[in-house]
Simulated assay, not measured.
Amino acid sequence: MERKFVVVTGIVQGVGFRFSAQREAERLGVTGRVRNRNDGSVEVAVQGTAQRVADMLRWLRTGPESANVRSFEVTDVVPVDDETQFSITG
């Protein structure tokens, strides 16, 4: 089990990024959260098996069709075992 913290910048707010991320996370079977930040970026925490997290990170690099991702920063985080879903928190 691994967990990553991601900050995505570009045109990522107002384009359905959070809802699309939640849908993709559910499809991939990963847990975590996604939220908009005040600076216009999107923050994502994703947890699951190494392969599923890698698949989610690959999706986050481009996001939904309406998004335009300019930068993508990933940080390793200690896993949280009690998450049961991927949620939109803000």
Results as ranks from 00 to 15, higher is better:
residue 7 V to G: 01
residue 69 V to K: 08
residue 66 S to A: 15
residue 66 S to T: 13
residue 40 G to N: 02
residue 54 A to P: 04
residue 87 S to K: 05
residue 69 V to H: 08
residue 26 E to S: 03
residue 50 A to Q: 13
residue 60 L to N: 04
residue 57 L to R: 08
residue 84 T to S: 14
residue 86 F to I: 02
residue 20 S to D: 02
residue 33 R to W: 15
residue 30 V to Q: 09
residue 54 A to G: 14
residue 50 A to C: 10
residue 41 S to H: 04
residue 80 V to H: 13
residue 82 D to K: 11
residue 14 G to V: 07
residue 4 K to G: 11
residue 84 T to P: 00
residue 81 D to W: 09
residue 36 N to C: 01
residue 57 L to K: 04
residue 35 R to M: 14
residue 34 V to Y: 04
residue 34 V to I: 11
residue 37 R to G: 02
residue 20 S to N: 09
residue 9 T to F: 06
residue 76 D to Q: 08
residue 67 A to M: 09
residue 36 N to Q: 02
residue 87 S to P: 00
residue 57 L to D: 07
residue 89 T to A: 07
residue 77 V to M: 15
residue 12 V to L: 05
residue 26 E to K: 00
residue 43 E to A: 14
residue 2 E to N: 05
residue 40 G to F: 02
residue 46 V to Q: 11
residue 86 F to A: 01
residue 80 V to C: 05
residue 39 D to W: 10
residue 33 R to E: 15
residue 16 G to I: 02
residue 42 V to L: 04
residue 84 T to W: 03
residue 19 F to L: 08
residue 25 A to R: 02
residue 85 Q to I: 03
residue 74 V to F: 05
residue 20 S to P: 01
residue 7 V to W: 04
residue 9 T to H: 06
residue 31 T to E: 08
residue 12 V to Q: 05
residue 83 E to V: 01
residue 17 F to V: 07
residue 25 A to P: 03
residue 26 E to Y: 00
residue 80 V to N: 13
residue 27 R to D: 11
residue 22 Q to I: 00
residue 8 V to I: 15
residue 38 N to G: 14
residue 46 V to L: 11
residue 38 N to P: 12
residue 41 S to R: 04
residue 23 R to L: 11
residue 25 A to M: 06
residue 61 R to H: 12
residue 24 E to A: 03
residue 73 E to T: 14
residue 22 Q to F: 00
residue 74 V to I: 13
residue 74 V to E: 12
residue 57 L to H: 08
residue 69 V to W: 13
residue 50 A to W: 00
residue 83 E to Q: 07
residue 30 V to N: 09
residue 4 K to H: 10
residue 54 A to V: 04
residue 28 L to C: 11
residue 61 R to I: 01
